[in-house]
């Protein structure tokens, strides 16, 4: 509920997207490609977290994406996992040239479940798809896996930019759908706060009344 309220201000949607995956699968490169449309081969390892924002329009709706890029090294998990909560979308990345990064995807999903996050939109990126000669993860296996886990898979290449934008646009459209679904099923917010606040508001009504009678 809170999440929905937070992400729609001034007719602009603000979605928080988290990129996770094994070490050196290209998470930072994907973020850079999408946010700035550049590719830097010499990008250093991500320490802790990094973030960029990107605005886009989709179906007449203005969307601002706050993209959090996390470190793949599990030693930084204590920091990165703090970002799982409140994320509207999760991008899981593996490297198509390294099988182990793909077989670790279930572990990442498990990690997400542990954090009790609210996000329903997950998307899978098979990055480095330009290195077709070194491919280690067969296309079919990956798509089958994504299907069985109710995720969309995009084979992307941060280097060439192939499919990166499409994948993010798809993610955004699904987040918008999820947002509207949540909005339609949402109940009225219950007044929160301590008792004194409630009393105060009662008295405020009295004041308003007295103002009239004055």
């Amino acid at each position: 509920m809170d999440q929905n309220q937070n992400c729609h201000k001034n007719n602009e949607f603000l979605f928080k997207v988290l990129i996770i995956g094994d070490v050196a699968v290209g998470k930072s490169s994907i973020m850079k490609r999408f946010a700035e449309n550049v590719f830097d081969r010499k990008y250093g390892s991500t320490i802790g977290v990094d973030f960029k924002t990107k605005k886009l329009k989709l179906g007449g709706k203005a969307v601002k994406l706050q993209i959090w890029d996390t470190a793949g090294h599990e030693r930084f998990r204590s920091i990165t996992s703090a970002f799982y909560r409140g994320a509207h979308g999760i991008v899981l990345v593996y490297d198509v040239t390294r099988m182990e990064t793909f077989t670790n995807i279930p572990k990442w999903l498990q990690e997400l479940d542990l954090q009790d996050y609210n996000c329903t939109v997950k998307i899978l990126f098979g990055n480095k798809s330009d290195l077709s000669s070194e491919r280690d993860v067969p296309r079919e296996t990956a798509f089958k896996y994504a299907d069985s886990n109710n995720m969309f898979l995009f084979e992307t290449s941060a280097k060439t930019g192939n499919s990166v934008n499409e994948a993010f646009e798809h993610l955004v459209s699904r987040m918008l759908v999820a947002f509207h679904e949540a909005e339609s099923t949402a109940t009225k917010p219950i007044l929160s706060g301590d008792l004194s606040t409630c009393i105060l508001s009662e008295q405020e009504k009295i004041i308003a009344g007295s103002g009239c009678s004055c």
């Binding site: 937070n6 928080k16 250093g44 991500t46 320490i47 802790g48 977290v49 990094d50 973030f51 706050q66 930084f76 920091i79 703090a82 970002f83 409140g86």
Partner: peptide, 20 residues
């Protein structure tokens, strides 16, 4: 803005002694 006062985004600065 989503309470960033935990300052996790400073992690790299401290870990690398402000190298990057």
């Amino acid at each position: 803005n989503g309470d960033l006062t935990h300052c996790y985004f400073c992690y790299r600065w401290f870990l690398l002694d402000f190298k990057r």
